[in-house]
């Protein structure tokens, strides 16, 4: 199997993911609506005081982003496992981890990117200072690939399990904690006008680490689920 063929397999899987997602539009839109609604809940819950909201906005946006990313994850491998696609992918001569990487990339494109585009709206609703908007989007751009990469591990591990949904969150939330800490810290630093390049660099490092390691774990988990 040479590199060119691997590329071909990867791009085919990538395109297939996109096609499947486009045919099931509600799966794409529902997490975003969930995100929007949860963000609306906060001013109703803690009061609409602009100072309070601006103070907790980075945390709220990141926590809701994290939770909404958990929503669609369950479907990532379950349907493919049930209709036998996953088994076929395992038989492909292309390394399974590369196929999983393209699946992760497609998932990010379908969930992470819309989230980033929605984020200015959320920032506006929560009265986040405009000076921090760019940092918020940058932190989402650097952080959401990690959500997809680590999330794929959880989805692959629970694909064959009996009670998938709650278990998936149970497994994944502790693993997302470092991301949450550094991402919110970066946005908060931007709000108070402190330098935050270091924090964004750490965020980028975490994402690169997760993108390099997680396809291997996902491939191993998929093999467990398929057997």
């Amino acid at each position: 199997m040479n590199t060119r063929n691997s590329w071909q397999v990867m791009s085919t899987v990538f395109k297939r993911e996109l096609t499947v997602a486009v045919r099931r539009k509600s799966d794409l839109i529902n997490p975003l609506l969930f995100l929007l609604m949860v963000v609306t809940l906060f001013p109703l819950g803690v009061g609409p005081g602009p100072d309070v909201l601006a103070r907790i906005a980075p945390g709220i946006i990141w926590i809701t982003a994290l939770l909404s990313s958990l929503l669609g994850l369950e479907r990532l491998f379950r349907d493919d496992l049930q209709d036998g696609t996953l088994e076929q992918l395992c038989l492909s001569p292309c390394p399974l981890s590369l196929i999983m990487l393209s699946k992760i990339a497609a998932h990010w494109l379908l969930t992470g990117l819309p989230l980033i585009m929605l984020s200015p709206l959320l920032a506006m609703l929560l009265n986040l200072p405009t000076s921090a908007w760019l940092t918020l989007m940058l932190s989402l751009l650097l952080g959401t690939p990690l959500l997809s990469a680590i999330g794929a591990i959880g989805a692959a591990l629970t694909a064959g399990a009996q009670r998938g949904g709650a278990l998936l969150s149970l497994i994944l939330i502790p693993l997302f904690i470092p991301l949450l800490i550094f991402a919110t810290a970066a946005v908060e630093a931007a709000v108070v006008g402190m330098p935050n390049q270091g924090l964004l660099a750490i965020l980028a490092a975490l994402t690169v680490l997760s993108l390099t390691c997680s396809p291997l774990a996902v491939a191993a988990a998929v093999k467990v689920s398929v057997n």
């Binding site: 680590i150 591990l157 629970t158 399990a161 009996q162 278990l167 497994i171 774990a217």
Partner: peptide
């Protein structure tokens, strides 16, 4: 998480393997 995953499978071997992967992650 590891414990919940271990016992979430009907097939115990699959559960053990999944839990092993999660423990390493």
């Amino acid at each position: 998480g590891v414990l919940a995953l271990y016992f979430a499978f009907d097939d115990q071997k699959a559960g053990a393997k999944a839990a092993a992967i999660l423990a390493i992650v």
